[in-house]
Amino acid sequence: MEKTTSLISKKHYPILDGLRGVAAIMVVAFHIFEAHATSHLNQIINHGYLAVDFFFLLSGFVISYAYDDRWSKMTVTDFFKIRLIRLQPMVIMGMIIGAVCFYFQDSVLWPTIHEVPIWKMLVVMIIGFTLIPVSLSMDIRGWQEMHPLNGPGWSLFFEYIGNILYALFVRKFSNTALAILVFLSGCLLIHLAVTSPNGDVIGGWSLEPTQLHIGFSRLLFPFFGGLLLHRIVKLTTINNGFFWASLLTVIVLAMPRIGGSKHLWMNGLYDSLSIIIIFPLIVFLGASGEVTGKYSTKICKFLGDISYPIYITHYPLIYIYTGWAVGSKPSFQEALPFALLTLIGAILLAYTCLKLYDEPVRLWLKQKMLTYKPAFITVK
């Protein structure tokens, strides 16, 4: 009989789960409004793209908390299995939903299924299951995305890279060595942001040098900064932590453009300082707060449960909405019902996928694949 390792359960951080859900919903709203923007300058919920960097920092913090002290009883293979079981089922579902929506799409923005061979779409979908980026020659949508059927797959690609670097190397770093890495990564991030042609950190989703530079710059500081934050921070007790952390998250992501078209570097500075200073503060507030009320507990749990599913499944709906908005050019009043329908539909789709697919599949995979049994903790 295989030996099973079981560890004492660790404290759970429900507020961090809730914050992840708040940020995920802000991402959906950001992408909906993006369909109506004429430039980055007039985009409503202007900094919603920073939610990706927030997710990276959250992941680094929680992974350090969950695994730093377990390597004497857990192998690298065990770690990779745990992370694959957590992330990969919804990656696959997101690509399937993306393929279905691509098949039925009809927009002037991109080719229809009559112009793209079905075999090519299916190949892109199958490659997408692995999160291996497709080459530009396989870009069936024309937006130069790593994953043309489900654009947000790019951030999961970098999330996996962060996990691999952590498991193979960075987990062994002393706090001093990790601090040096985080400092240098912060310098790289600031340089990217303030010198960006658009004055922001947007990008990372294409398989070409400039976009890969953006992707790695956006990954390294927040992911490893989250690790360092967990290692060195001393938590306190903060009342109403979920409210204050959620409010700060919404403010940062909804902030209008800084500096206008004449001072693009100012918005880049805002982006980088939000990631380097404000996001760690938000995570600190969330980790320090307590959820005691019945309804607050349920809200945090629901938001945490749907956070990853909504992020990885919403974008095929955004393709459809964007195609409609660009083709029909509706006024804000005309678009509002469809925008709300898209937002609600994304939440319902995420919850349905979670309950009918993700949770049962992950449970089955844990029973089949894991000999190491991690303590009960949500790591997303």
Rank of each mutant, 00 (worst) to 15 (best):
A179C: 06
T38H: 11
L189G: 04
V361I: 15
S39C: 05
L16F: 01
Q367N: 15
E290S: 15
L354C: 03
G18R: 03
S39H: 07
D271T: 03
Y67C: 06
M121H: 05
L50K: 02
S296A: 12
H47V: 04
R141P: 06
L212A: 02
T130F: 11
I377F: 05
K298Y: 10
H314W: 10
K355W: 07
N198Q: 12
W154C: 01
P89H: 07
I282H: 01
L149M: 11
L41E: 13
F284D: 01
I97E: 09
F223S: 00
L317V: 06
L341E: 05
S6H: 13
S107R: 05
F54V: 00
H47W: 05
L219D: 04
G199Y: 06
V326A: 12
T75Y: 09
F169I: 15
A339W: 03
L192K: 14
A335F: 01
T195H: 14
I299T: 13
L41Q: 13
L317P: 06
L227P: 00
W154H: 12
F56K: 01
T297D: 09
T352H: 03
V28E: 04
F61I: 00
H314C: 11
F284Q: 01
D78L: 09
V76P: 00
F30R: 02
F104V: 15
L228Q: 06
I238H: 09
I127T: 13
W110D: 07
G241F: 07
P330D: 00
L336C: 05
I97F: 15
L235I: 11
T112Y: 04
V116M: 07
A51S: 15
V134D: 09
K329D: 02
L356Y: 14
G186W: 03
M255Y: 10
D53C: 07
K380M: 06
M1D: 10
F216A: 13
V379N: 00
L356E: 06
G128K: 09
A287Y: 09
A375I: 00
T5V: 15
L269Q: 06
G327M: 13
W71L: 08
G128P: 10
I318W: 08
P337S: 10
I251P: 05
V108S: 14
F242Q: 05
P117I: 11
L156S: 01
S331L: 04
V52D: 01
L228C: 07
